[in-house]
């Protein structure tokens, strides 16, 4: 069943004094099936995070619509939960209280939200840390809190904005693996933005490739690798074919947008 539909979504920032209007995203179209894992990949400045923020209604589109289960969405809500690159945890709250926040905002009674929060904290493997504060945790652990917080409100769609972008390479791989485990268990629809090509292939049912200036969707690639996937799949010949296809697509983008963007797109942050 098609769950999320993005139609002709466009975001244009008005011209600054003396400048030209800036087109951040140009006519994006996208349909996501229920339970599908979609990754969005593209060079810096291609509007992939912008697209996610528009779907979350944290930004207002100039044109176009976002429909969830056939209904147009206009305001942010727990039906589309976000996981942020910078984690965006509240430093004065413990892990438990951070995970509870979404339910707290919906005025779910304390005892009930505590039970729900504990369930998701356990799912991300942080039960021993529920009374810790974010500053006492590593980056990987903080993002697990971010994931548990997003899942706690039982969203229709999980929107992940370069969630592992701030983590180092090894932790990043482990987190990807764990995310797949979680997803295979409850099959939430996931939209996952990344600039890491391997990550985009490894996680996805489908990859949406975007290009910069103006930001637009240029290609969708179905990933037909068997599931469940382990880290070893990255060295398989099939994986390599996807990798090369993506590289070729992105290389054109990178060349077109100049050497500065090239460095941003290929290098790790």
């Amino acid at each position: 069943m098609t769950q999320l539909v993005v139609e002709n979504l466009r975001l244009e920032y008005p011209a600054a004094r003396g400048g030209k209007p800036y087109l951040a995203l140009s006519e994006a179209n996208l349909a996501v099936e229920s339970g599908e894992f979609v990754t969005i990949v593209g060079p810096s400045g291609c509007g992939k995070s912008t697209l996610l923020m528009l779907i979350a209604s944290l930004l207002r589109a100039t044109n176009g619509t976002v429909k969830l289960n056939g209904k147009e969405v206009a305001a942010p809500g727990p039906d589309r939960a976000l996981v942020f690159q910078d984690f965006a945890l509240l430093p004065w709250r413990t892990v438990l209280k951070n995970v509870e926040i979404g339910l707290e905002l919906q005025r779910v009674p304390v005892a009930r939200r505590r039970d729900i929060a504990r369930k998701y904290i356990e799912m991300v493997g942080l039960s021993a840390f529920e009374m810790h504060y974010p500053h006492q945790l590593s980056g990987g652990m903080r993002q697990r809190v971010g994931i548990a917080r997003a899942l706690s409100v039982d969203p229709e769609v999980l929107l992940m904005d370069e969630p592992f972008g701030a983590l180092d390479a090894q932790i990043r791989q482990v987190m990807g693996l764990e995310l797949l485990h979680i997803w295979e268990r409850d099959r939430k629809t996931i939209l996952f933005v990344t600039h890491d090509i391997d990550e985009a292939i490894y996680l996805a049912d489908r990859i949406v490739v975007m290009s910069a200036s103006p930001g637009r969707v240029i290609r969708e690639i179905k990933v037909e690798l068997p599931r469940p996937r382990g880290l070893a799949i990255r060295t398989s010949p099939e994986f390599n074919i996807y990798r090369e296809t993506l590289w070729n697509l992105l290389e054109e983008q990178v060349r077109a947008s100049g050497s500065w963007a090239a460095a941003k797109a290929t290098g790790d942050r």
């Binding site: 942020f84 509240l90 926040i101 905002l105």
Partner: peptide
């Protein structure tokens, strides 16, 4: 900004953002 953004994403009201993000922060 990230604290406010996190709450806004869950559909928090303006009052909730003040009480649960801005004042404690």
């Amino acid at each position: 900004e990230s604290w406010v953004r996190a709450l806004r994403a869950f559909g928090a009201t303006r009052g909730q953002i003040i009480v649960k993000a801005i004042l404690p922060g």
